[in-house]
């Protein structure tokens, strides 16, 4: 029996005048790692809140682990785990007390053996009586995943699991998420705005922008969909569209900020032509986007998921949350 772990139809959330999630159809088959990839404010967190029953669904239906989130929220909640973007633990309690509380809230019996083996799995067994307030960021994240796994859920939701972590910890966490998915046979739904993360970690990716799915598929399928490459070009003074379209291999030109986004057959070929025909001193910025999930997003929306401009407030938000959480 391969029941869908998550099955949502026409899922919609309206906040006042803003439609944060707009008629999304989401089917996640059991056993895989599913990624929601999108820029800040796309609606990723909102989707998780709707699927976990934390936020009321405005319109549409959602089944998680076979239960209607609206009609049988308690049944669904017994079968899901949740890992927050900002790491939410009780700092005044020890690791073991956090696990104890989770077991009481999930009302599971015989949890101590599982708790012990989870602590061992995450290398936390020698710190189990220590207050969580003194844990490092990586340890806190691991404990949070252990909490999410304690009651043997069928689905785990992870909101931006690696946000704010350094490259090494992030890679370690990717390994861990894949390991958890395999060894505990739990379906993982994660959100991310890191292209490499979705590419490296997910079996299946849905790309989301302004509350809508713009594409869905395996990372390879999505990449194969975009045959073209992209060049972002900014010159001072700006070039005219006709000049750009006259360059060899250019399929289309789209204005992007104060520059242009060129869809080209081969970036190398066009780039060579640009360097000979355009005065290099006028080139302010040039960037080549090879086939990747980023270029899929660029192709579909004309903007970037992983804009550096987006990173700054994002990190600030993350650290603000972290400080709040650690107080």
């Amino acid at each position: 029996m391969t029941l869908a772990a998550i099955d949502a139809t026409g899922l919609t959330k309206v906040y006042g005048r803003l439609t944060a999630v707009d008629h999304v159809d989401l089917k996640v088959s059991a056993g895989g790692v599913f990624g929601l990839l999108g820029p800040n404010g796309a609606g990723k967190t909102t989707i998780i809140k709707l699927l976990t029953g934390l936020s009321d669904i405005t319109e549409g239906s959602a089944y998680v682990a076979g239960f209607d989130v609206r009609r049988q929220p308690m049944h669904a909640k017994q079968r899901i785990g949740w890992v927050a973007a900002e790491v939410i633990l009780d700092d005044d309690l020890s690791a073991w007390e956090n696990l104890w509380l989770q077991a009481q809230l999930q009302r599971i019996s015989g949890w101590t053996d599982r708790a012990r083996s989870l602590l061992r799995y995450f290398d936390l067994d020698d710190r189990r009586s220590d207050r969580v307030g003194g844990f490092s960021t990586g340890m806190r994240k691991k404990l949070e995943i252990a909490l999410a796994l304690l009651h043997q859920p069928e689905v785990i939701f992870m909101d931006e699991p690696t946000i704010g972590l350094d490259a090494n910890t992030r890679r370690m966490l990717w390994e861990m998420i894949r390991g958890v998915n395999r060894e505990f046979q739990v379906t993982v739904l994660l959100t991310s705005h890191y292209i490499e993360e979705a590419d490296a970690l997910c079996d299946h990716v849905a790309i989301i922008d302004h509350g809508r799915f713009v594409a869905q598929g395996t990372p390879d399928e999505l990449k194969a969909r975009v045959r073209a490459e992209f060049i972002e070009l900014e010159t001072r003074p700006p070039l005219a569209e006709a000049e750009l379209l006259a360059l060899p291999g250019v399929q289309s030109a789209r204005s992007q900020g104060s520059g242009w986004l060129l869809r080209v057959a081969s970036a190398d070929e066009t780039l060579a032509a640009i360097l000979t025909r355009v005065d290099p001193r006028t080139i302010h910025r040039v960037n080549v986007e090879r086939p990747s999930l980023e270029s899929v997003f660029i192709d579909l929306t004309g903007s970037r998921i992983d804009s550096t401009a987006g990173e700054v407030p994002d990190y600030r938000k993350f650290y603000a949350n972290l400080r709040r959480a650690q107080r």
């Binding site: 029953g53 934390l54 909640k77 017994q78 949740w82 989770q102 809230l105 999930q106």
Partner: peptide, 15 residues
């Protein structure tokens, strides 16, 4: 509520 712990509680089958 502010530190998110209420979310952790309400994401379990606790009324």
């Amino acid at each position: 509520k502010r530190f998110g712990f209420m979310k952790r509680i309400l994401l379990t089958p606790t009324s």
